[in-house]
Design a protein around this nucleic acid. Sequence first.
DNA 1: ACCCAGGTGGCCC
DNA 2: GGGCCACATGGG
Length: 224
Amino acid sequence: MRLREILRRLREHFGRHGWWPAETDYEVILGAILVQRTAWRNVEKAIEGMRGRGLLDPKAVVESELYRLEEAVRSSGFYRQKAWRILAFTRYLFDEYSGCLKRLFSKPTEELRRELLELEGFGPETVDSILLYAVGRPVLPVDAYVRRTLERVEGTATGRMPYEELQSLIHKNLKGGVEAYRDLRALTVMLGKAYCRKDPICLPCPLKDICRYSLSMKAGLEAP
DNA sequence: ACCCAGGTGGCCC
DNA sequence: GGGCCACATGGG
């Protein structure tokens, strides 16, 4: 897998961008839940909905009524499940860790990962996003953008591997630690958005000449 | 009136 | 392991 090369080109093209758009660790967790199968612009509204109701703080959330949380996050879609998942996680945080994220985060990566995966609505991508962007562990969330990028550069056999299998293959082939994984995740998202067919931007796609496959235009890896 | 977006869980074979 | 479905809103 040419992950080093992919990352090098993306960094050269977009600059370093180890982002997660959030002010606090708790907000990263909220965003990771709210963004499930949803466009980020709708998540922003939901976060603002929570901010407007004073709900960006775990203490406020755990004392809040479910319906109030639901109306706050309505714009993110699947709002009933998401409100419940946020409330259930926050209750668990208070029941098990006195509401202290630092205490939860102090566990070893594998143990913490297994524990978070037990929570309702915390699948592998949500958990790994939290591990990478809130806890700061070298774990790559394998999202749709990473998959589509690898499908085109390396082929569908790679892009469609089961989650854990693909993730460990990536971990084996890219050792740059937290910074590398944050950049790879962020920059593949930026690539997908920048080269979406509907986007008017017309620059050469930084990966075009190393793509073995171009399936559909949908993921946007075709240069315009 | 479609189709899609930075998933997850349940059910089926 | 893989295929299908519900979950729901906002934008193109």
